[in-house]
Design a protein around this nucleic acid. Sequence first.
DNA 1: GGGAATTAAAAGTACTACTTTTACGTCACA
DNA 2: TGTGACGTAAAAGTAGTACTTTTAATTCCC
Lengths: 233, 233
Amino acid sequence: MTTPAQGLHSHVLATLGLAITAGEYPPGTVLRTDELAQRFDVSRTVVREVVRVLESMHLVESRRRVGVTVLPTASWNVYDPQVIRWRLAGADRPRQLRSLTVLRSAVEPVAAGLAAENATPEQCRELTEHALGMVATSRGRRLEEYLVHDIAFHRVVLNASGNEMFARLGDVVAEVLTGRTHHHVMFEDPDPAAVTLHVQVAEAVRERDAARAEELTRQIAVGALQELDVLAP
Amino acid sequence: MTTPAQGLHSHVLATLGLAITAGEYPPGTVLRTDELAQRFDVSRTVVREVVRVLESMHLVESRRRVGVTVLPTASWNVYDPQVIRWRLAGADRPRQLRSLTVLRSAVEPVAAGLAAENATPEQCRELTEHALGMVATSRGRRLEEYLVHDIAFHRVVLNASGNEMFARLGDVVAEVLTGRTHHHVMFEDPDPAAVTLHVQVAEAVRERDAARAEELTRQIAVGALQELDVLAP
DNA sequence: GGGAATTAAAAGTACTACTTTTACGTCACA
DNA sequence: TGTGACGTAAAAGTAGTACTTTTAATTCCC
């Protein structure tokens, strides 16, 4: 139904995970493993493995004599890329997009500052390359190409920061940018001001100007937030 | 050996997860499920469930005809609280503590700013209470009590920010503070300057002064980073 | 009416048999 | 000698069954 998937496990996991994160089962809902096995037409073995994974994401809790209980949103591992993807695919994408964008606005400026201090020449080169790529594709309905450069740019910044936790947010940023592009304004061209800012960040990093890189990235973030305010409830 | 644990699954998971995050199995190491079953003296069923969870954390990858391969650090879900706990318990605690503290320094100031805008009266009260608690326990070898207030304080700030992603970092902050306290300087009293700053943050939030709350929290973060620089390689 | 004993429901565990994928080695052919 | 088709076996994946353990809920006794 949702994903063909190779392997029963993946299929059941994707379906259940999506359903839970979409709020189809309100917190407190109790599922039984045999029931699930029957519903998905797989063995209890498969269901149990899926439940264990869901449990490790704190989406559900499994207790003897009770069953598998759906947990409230507050306990979910919302940093799990899988969970993020499910939620962005589901109903509360707007809320999720906003939370993540605020997170970005906190993290990316600091990451850019560190990148200015730690970026390798190679990373500087990549940064410039992608910034120019953004310029080149910022007009004429080339949003898909633009998106690729945008994602790559931010990923390089996060990696260049030298901080592992920042680096691992690359996937999150990618999901946010992709979701944003594929959701609203696919037809319009990106904000020219933002494009310029990216070029300037690349410059600042190349010139090892941490304060400037941080400030410019902060401006990008503010812009993204404002854009979201305009286009979302 | 590590945890008695209730349930074979938890035990095997804890042992294996800890071993992998500790680097006992270099990336590329291949484990076989039957072998693991034998080693832990449990059924393959249990091992498979554990592997599935480990796989969802991107610590390992399971492929047919090959086995269970340990993945490089770069692909681990480093935001998974479980993974964080394992890593903090292991060998590279210093590195980990630094990464997490940098993350905090990026996130918490922004969270504090938002908290000043969104905190409920109840949350303001709690904030003040814990800040005063920190003051009260900041002298006379009462580090354990101090820690409780410190953790609670930061948790309230993160929750009060109203941002879900920030809120979920409460556990991470708790782990960092706990690790920090239980590692170095158990015997010394906390930095008085930091204590004062916490009181002031509570004040700023209560007075809805977002800019001040943000700035003060930034100072706390800077202090924490400096402290780490002094006490760690 | 409250607390102890009983029951049964559901997850947890084990084991066994079978299927599916796929790395690797073999062999034929160019 | 190199290259591609092919076969084989190793390991994970799946299924099903039987049994154990925990524990919520009911019953029953005082």
